[in-house]
């Protein structure tokens, strides 16, 4: 039995989570929210994490009812993500590990999302669509690695949505993506946008610059809601298409959607329709687990720890670039 605590802060969410054998004992989070029209920058985000991390840690310990002595391993996000915010969590994790005299373990953020999704949904060996502010990947497991079959060749889907929300000056609370989703529900008139799929890869930058360049003109004919609706329909159709292509290529009949954009209900619905058309099944989670959190880091760390992965204290660093397929998946041998 492993009890693990996880620290996550690779972007604007700060989370601390505690798990015991796949049972969630605490899941606490704060989000750094910027004014409308503005994105989050590394320095300010790191400051936010610094100011909140002690409170969130205390909250998580209280929620779990555990004392630090009962924890077996201290996990933190090693990467990928923004350097300064990652560093805040790594430093606090290292301090805790020393203070409590526990082993430390750095976790790949993307692998955290995947394992969290598998835990919550009980999907067995799914094709994974990982969609967030910084990532867009279609992943499948093979021979002890999560292999990337498709990905964006420029910007991430969440980044595209967030930046369009800024163009429209939508609020960033609770998240720009959420507000686009709500606006899209009221959209009626469909605008055809550039659509760019290359095999199992996608490209979103053309769509974004098209919208940015033409926004004044477009707003004369379309409401902001229409544009949110059209944007979502286009981006998500591309994502569903590459997921289906990867499924056909891998002979898979399960899809798991993870990452912040994964809690978008329209995306889940579209994926469900695609799956029904090919006798497959879709799995998704809600915002508690989809959006960056500490539990996913604790849980993926616990799996690695249990299967013998260890990290020396001197290696407990961070890295802004850390690919999903760099991780040796020691806890699976199917």
């Amino acid at each position: 039995m492993v009890i693990a605590i996880g620290f996550e802060g690779s972007a604007n969410k700060l989370g601390v989570g505690i798990v015991r054998d796949g049972e969630i004992l605490a899941n606490c989070r704060r989000t750094y929210i910027t004014p409308p029209g503005e994105g989050f920058l590394p320095r300010e985000t790191a400051e936010h994490h610094q100011q909140n991390i002690h409170e969130v840690l205390q909250e998580a310990l209280d929620q779990s009812g555990l004392s630090p002595q009962q924890i077996d391993v201290v996990c933190y996000t090693k990467g990928p993500g923004m350097g300064a915010p990652l560093m805040v969590c790594a430093i606090v994790a290292r301090t805790c590990a020393k203070l409590w005299n526990k082993p430390i373990l750095g976790v790949n953020h993307c692998v955290g999302h995947i394992e969290m999704g598998r835990l919550i949904t009980k999907a067995n060996n799914p094709t994974v669509l990982y969609v967030s502010g910084g990532n867009t990947q279609v992943i499948a497991y093979s021979r002890q690695r999560y292999r990337i079959f498709g990905e964006t060749i420029d910007i991430a889907v969440g980044n595209c949505l967030d930046r369009f929300a800024r163009v429209l000056k939508l609020s960033n609370a609770p998240s720009p993506g959420y507000n686009i989703e709500q606006a899209a529900k009221k959209g009626i008139k469909y605008l055809q946008l550039p659509y760019c799929v290359k095999g199992m890869d996608v490209s979103f930058s053309g769509i974004l610059s098209y919208m940015e360049d033409k926004i004044e003109e477009l707003l004369k004919e379309y409401t902001p809601e229409d544009l949110c609706y059209s944007l979502q329909e286009t981006l998500f159709a591309m994502l569903v298409e590459i997921t289906e292509r990867a499924m056909a290529h891998c002979g898979s009949d399960e899809v798991l959607i993870v990452g912040g954009v994964g809690c978008n209900e329209r995306l889940q619905e579209m994926m469900g329709v695609m799956c029904a058309e090919r006798g497959a099944k879709v799995f998704a989670t809600d915002e508690r687990f989809c959006i960056d959190n500490g539990v996913m880091i604790a849980y993926a760390g616990a799996l690695a720890h249990e299967s013998g992965t260890r990290m020396e204290f001197k290696d407990a660093t961070i890295t802004q670039r850390y690919r999903t397929d760099d991780v040796l998946v020691t806890w699976r041998n199917d």
Partner: peptide
């Protein structure tokens, strides 16, 4: 279905990249 006619080197480069990635992921052995 996803093919097109283009003389640019960029598209040929992307075509090769797509192939490389497909091979790495599918035939990692």
């Amino acid at each position: 279905g996803l093919s097109f006619i283009d003389s640019s080197t960029e598209d040929k480069g992307v075509d090769l990249y797509v192939l490389e990635r497909a091979l790495i992921s599918t035939h990692n052995d």
